[in-house]
């Protein structure tokens, strides 16, 4: 469970969020929408504990969270990483490597199989297709069996087919495995199965009301 209580956040050049209060229950699928620059990423970074609120409090009773950020080194050809290495890095903790290897190989194999990545496990991630890169991102997130997956517009710049596959994977994680999902998206139709949609607007967060918008797409 995650609860925001009158949370506010300001950077040096001004306030980004104020009076933010909402709750995410275990296993819920929450969509977050809002215009560019509205403060969606700041909200997510507060939720993950990457930023500290300047006022109010964020309560986190979530045992394990996996985060899929907007930017990674996936498509960076100067970072040499295979599919297997990226997915396996989802299991890295602050334990020295020799003490954290037990059971790791088996788990990596299971997840690579599940996401159809076993055949391309030795390939460099910079050289696989956009759709395969999305599968790698999600596989890395779920490998540690988190109870909540938080995604910050992971579909940016993705083609339609890859985008649809990403949504399919998320819905499967939510519906079949009961995982909680918090998903920032620009597309309302991605969030049809969401338990609730929150809108970040005018520096605060409130439940999304369709009637207030002329267009379905933001």
């Amino acid at each position: 469970m995650i609860r925001f209580e009158n949370v506010g956040f300001s950077f040096k050049d001004g306030e980004v969020l104020h009076d933010v209060s909402f709750e995410v229950k275990d296993g819920e699928f929450i969509g977050i929408i809002g215009a560019n620059g509205a403060g969606k990423t700041t909200l997510i970074r507060l939720l993950l504990g990457l930023l500290k609120p300047t006022s109010g409090k964020v309560h986190r009773e979530e045992p394990s969270i996996a985060y899929v950020s907007q930017t990674t080194s996936l498509s960076d050809s100067s970072f040499p990483a295979t599919v297997e290495e990226v997915v396996g890095s989802g299991l890295a903790r602050m334990k020295p490597t020799p003490f954290s290897l037990k059971g790791k190989k088996q788990r990596v194999k299971e997840v690579l199989d599940e996401f159809g990545l076993w055949e391309i496990r030795k390939k460099l991630v910079a050289e696989i297709s956009g759709g395969q890169q999305q599968r790698v991102k999600i596989a890395k997130a779920v490998i540690s069996s988190p109870s909540l997956i938080v995604l910050d517009e992971p579909d940016a710049g993705m083609d339609h087919e890859s985008h649809d596959k990403l949504i399919e994977m998320l819905e499967r994680e939510h519906q079949e495995k009961g995982k909680g999902v918090i998903f920032i998206s620009h597309h309302l139709h991605d969030l049809v199965h969401a338990d609730a949609i929150l809108e970040v607007r005018n520096g605060t967060v409130r439940p999304f009301v369709q009637e207030e918008h002329h267009h379905a797409e933001l």
Binding site: R45, L48, L50, Y67, A92, R93
Partner: peptide, 8 residues
């Protein structure tokens, strides 16, 4: 950021 959330 992802590494931080992982607990590293």
């Amino acid at each position: 950021s992802e590494a931080k959330v992982q607990g590293i």
